[in-house]
Design a protein around this nucleic acid. Structure first.
Lengths: 203, 203
DNA sequence: GTCTATAGTAAGATAGAC
DNA sequence: GTCTATCTTACTATAGAC
């Protein structure tokens, strides 16, 4: 590879990395192109040699995250029959989701803000929620087929779980607001989603 | 009251009402001052005779909502001892929250977007979440004092519930995305938060 | 108080030298 | 490919006539 090409790749990577920082620092919508280039130590114009706009940059970050998520999923091998009413299984799912979100907080933040940017009327946030919780939904539908009585429509239940997770990720990660370690947060969410406020029947 | 004053009050109200529409239509951040004045059928400049900026207008809408919420709360009379592990009580709480959010969707939308606008680092969304779920938290802390074993830290559990509710409100209301009636949504959330995915012990 | 017209500002995006 | 300099656009906010 030529020297020029290497330089270009470096700049590209520097811009992406700077964007990650800035998205967490300022939020996605609030991050200006100049914030990114400044943080990367490049000139404003250089941005446009690599990306057409902020959305395109985000799309590439998203691809990375998807690859990462897929890897983690297939590593553990996820058949549809995973039983979400089993504490170990549920805990592992929530833990994985939390882990991937933390590793890709800038992307989570950006997607969330982007989905909200068009307003509630657009239905874009709902679409995101449904897409991102497809796995939960599959597991829930399987349970239902097995005769298990769910709290309600699997799509809604899955979306509710996803909404809880992503909002908390946004609110907690990066600000360390709660002071609680990740383990404890995942434990709490597992308990809440498994047996609810009432707790397991046996006291 | 003089004619001039009446006219002014009318314009003021028209601007607020137009803002409500626009916030739901376009989202809060995306709504420009000119969108509001245009929707209200007034000139751009008139906006500034009544509000210094968008945030101030929102603050007034918020006051209305608080009054409304307070009224609904004191109407039902909410002592700290309300037992959230009792289905009827939990259902009534969630239903009330859902109802107030629907009646004030523009405000919910705006506050949510506003809280996210500063980015995750600011901790503003977490702050909102904690503030808005104070009531849940109180009830949960009471339960804990009574020896009931909660899923985890009451602050976190309450915030998780609030995050789930507000995200779903944003995603569902106004787009009617799910096709489900409000009753069914509240029922589902009640079941999920009361006994979790596993459901009540007795099958 | 409300309007029209416009000044001011911030950010996205491009042109052209190196 | 990267830079500096600049054009363009969209919006906020104000000035001044009515």
């Amino acid at each position: 590879m030529g020297v020029r090409k290497v330089r270009a790749a470096e700049t590209r990577a520097a811009l992406q990395e700077a964007a990650r920082e800035q998205f967490v620092q300022r939020g996605f919508l609030n991050t200006k192109i100049t914030d990114i280039t400044a943080a990367a130590g490049r000139a404003t114009g250089s941005f446009y040699d690599h990306f057409t706009d902020k959305d395109e940059l985000l799309k590439e970050l998203l691809t990375d995250m998807h690859a990462q998520a897929r890897e983690r999923i297939t590593a553990g091998d996820h058949p549809r029959e995973h039983d979400l009413t089993d504490r170990a299984h549920l805990h592992s799912h929530l833990g994985a989701a939390w882990h991937v979100m933390r590793a890709n907080l800038p992307v989570v933040v950006a997607l969330y803000e982007q989905a909200m940017a068009d307003g509630p009327r657009s239905g874009r946030l709902w679409q995101r929620l449904v897409e991102d919780t497809a796995m939960f939904r599959d597991h829930l539908e399987y349970l239902r087929e097995q005769g298990h009585r769910l709290p309600g429509d699997p799509v809604l239940v899955a979306a509710a779980m996803g909404g809880m997770l992503s909002t908390l990720a946004y609110a907690i990660m990066g600000s360390g607001a709660t002071g609680l370690p990740d383990d404890e947060i995942v434990d709490t969410l597992t308990s809440l989603l498994l047996h609810g406020l009432a707790g397991p029947a046996a006291k």
